[in-house]
Design a protein around this nucleic acid. Structure first.
Lengths: 210, 210
DNA sequence: ACCTGAACACCGTTCAAGT
DNA sequence: ACCTGAACACCGTTCAAGT
């Protein structure tokens, strides 16, 4: 909801900026505009000066609302993960299927803000303990029957594993290694990866039932 | 051997630079000095101007031996992977053990040039088909009895999976998610991850024998 | 052939001055 | 309180001029 109003506000005020009508600067407006720039032109395409220009404002005005560029990047990453609505764990479905769904949700989010994700995975603090993704993952692993001590450890491993796949997929490494940049083949590879993880978990002591 | 002579040459000539004795510029000297800078200060710590200063030379002189910074980064990444000596596959050891060894070799390499790895994984073209790592990996998967069509696909998946783990480990994400930044716990996590992959491969049709 | 100084088009950020 | 212009310390890169 906060995000939603922020977006419509942005649209209005960016229009104002276009007609040289100085907008009310707001951290939220700054962050959402910056995120739009990163989505469009990549992380390299974002600079304080270009952002100010897009907002129709003096570059230095930004520093009254955002302490520095690092804080700006942190802000837009929080805005991006706020877009993530993980499908709440439906405990009627067996855990392997739950795990697959979480994997696909994560991959879908990454594709949504692919330019940002490449940056985030290269820097610490992206995957937070508090996020809905982490909670859903741990819940599913616990439901699979993993001992408590293993839930956190295995959760981390799974998260970093699929992060690596998604990163390689987005930056093109995966396409380079496969003969073709065939999207279907990449999907098949991801499916194979998830299969291996689920099967490996089963072999590790997870209960095969629900 | 080429690398070796380059390193000693570097040492001598960097010493010359320190006493303002202009060295003979060489692509090799430039690359190895740049790699040393990245290893020491991170990718942000490398600039054409600082590199020139370290070499005791005018910044513009570099452009007679290296077309631009992108080419420089490509050069130092090739230099880094040249350091990787993957233990040649000993076909007496069973494939799960072979796979574990490859995983540990890759992780060790990443730790050796951790600052560079963070950059490389974020950009395409790092993991090449030609590298010894890829060859060893495919050989092992083939020996495990995977159908030919699956070897490449699964090889990619495994490589991106452990890349993701190593990346999170190096940039500190992994330590943040675990309660402690305990090194032993991270090692245990990696072992758990490799276990899951090996078990998953077994379940997928790999022969349990050698 | 190799090196260099000046210059250009960019950065992030500080600070004193304006309203 | 908010905005701004000038300035500082950096970038990568081009180009004409030196040897």
């Amino acid at each position: 909801m906060v995000t939603r109003s922020g977006r419509t506000q942005q649209a209005r005020q960016v229009r104002q900026a276009a007609r040289k009508d100085p907008p009310h600067l707001t951290p939220e407006l700054i962050h959402s505009t910056a995120l739009a720039m990163v989505d469009a032109d990549g992380i390299e395409g974002l600079s304080m000066r270009k952002l100010a220009a897009a907002l129709g404002v003096n570059p230095m005005s930004l520093y009254h609302h955002v302490p520095n560029k690092a804080a700006l990047l942190l802000g837009i990453s929080q805005l991006a993960v706020a877009d993530l609505r993980i499908t709440p764990a439906d405990d009627d479905t067996p855990w392997p299927e739950q795990l697959r769904q979480i994997g696909h949700s994560f991959r879908a989010l990454a594709h949504q803000h692919s330019n940002l994700i490449v940056y985030l995975l290269g820097h610490p603090g992206f995957i937070q303990r508090e996020g809905p993704l982490w909670g859903a993952l741990c819940h599913t692993l616990w439901r699979a029957g993993l001992p408590d001590a293993e839930v956190g450890r295995i959760g981390n491993v799974l998260l970093t594993f699929v992060s690596g796949f998604v990163l390689a997929e987005i930056n093109g490494s995966l396409g380079d290694l496969l003969d073709s940049a065939d999207a279907a083949e990449i999907d098949r590879s991801f499916e194979a990866g998830v299969d291996i993880l689920v099967a490996g978990l089963g072999a590790r002591g997870a209960s095969p039932a629900n």
